[in-house]
């Protein structure tokens, strides 16, 4: 196999709490993600899975360990890794179109070209008619579509998705999961996807990394060997899909029990 897209080695993160004590959030995590692979990090809230993602993004510095992207160590944020946050994090003072154009403009793409590319992306996420709206005028699902388009606009090789559908209602969530899969199956970007939803992780991923809580360690890595393109209705009656769900639910329950027992 060629060089991994993302390599995480011995990653550890400690935080100082308010009373000055050191809190171990992530302990010795090792993961490799291949190019074009869709990997989910699954764990209960407070297991440090988002922190792990932020460290790959270069937003948060690790306490020790190493993260390399295409062999180069991560020293800060860069347009090769595009984040999508649960909170959308759209610029409220910019219109939908201006939000999507932002990254291109920052990288010196001409206004006309940035606008053309942004409009094409908005078309792809079915928001063509909302280009001149402000984020506050859109529903949660639409805002997250804008956020995804904004990130796709500057063509990162890796998508870092931090519970992107966590703030959406159940229906919108499934719609967006389907759309995300559609986009991913077309251009096969490398995706690191943080979630606490077992079905979401199984539906989307090639591999699921299950994490423990306080400190966050890798509990188990589960390969999801399901055919693509995946269709939700077919999967629901797929025996192997059901087995993955059961296995992962069981693992998550174990994590909870361990944390409670500790």
């Amino acid at each position: 196999m060629s060089e991994p897209m993302i390599a995480i080695q011995g990653l550890t993160k400690r935080f100082s709490t308010a009373d000055g004590r050191r809190h171990l959030a992530i302990d010795d995590v090792n993961v490799e993600v291949a190019e074009g692979e869709f990997v989910s990090i699954l764990g209960p809230s407070g297991c440090g899975k988002s922190t792990l993602l932020y460290m790959v993004g270069g937003f948060v510095a690790p306490s020790s360990g190493a993260i390399t992207v295409q062999g180069r160590p991560v020293t800060g944020p860069g347009p090769d890794r595009g984040p999508v946050f649960q909170e959308f994090a759209l610029f409220p003072w910019k219109t939908v179109l201006e939000n999507v154009m932002y990254g291109l403009r920052q990288q010196g793409v001409s206004k006309a070209e940035a606008e053309a590319r942004a409009r094409a992306l908005l078309d792809m996420v079915h928001l063509k008619d909302f280009a001149d709206f402000y984020p506050k005028e859109l529903s949660g699902g639409m805002r997250q579509r804008v956020a995804i388009a904004r990130t796709l606009a500057y063509q990162p090789q890796i998508l870092l998705m931090d519970e992107p559908f966590g703030a959406l209602d159940a229906h919108t969530r499934t719609v967006l999961q389907n759309e995300l899969l559609g986009i991913w199956e077309r251009d096969r970007k490398t995706v690191l996807f943080v979630t606490h939803g077992v079905d979401e992780a199984v539906f989307l991923s090639d591999r699921v990394v299950v994490m423990t809580r306080a400190p966050g360690r890798i509990k188990k890595v589960v390969e999801i060997d399901l055919p693509r393109p995946r269709v939700r209705a077919e999967l629901l009656v797929n025996r192997r899909y059901q087995e993955y769900i059961v296995e992962l639910e069981q693992l998550i329950e174990d994590v909870h029990l361990e944390a409670a027992g500790a």
Binding site: E87, G103, Q106
Partner: peptide, 27 residues
Amino acid sequence: VEPKLLWSAWAAGASRRATIFTVVLPS
């Protein structure tokens, strides 16, 4: 300023100086 707005801008390739005018000030 919401840190994730800054992160989004940095990840999109904006320099620290640019984010002062495109993110911090409007926020």
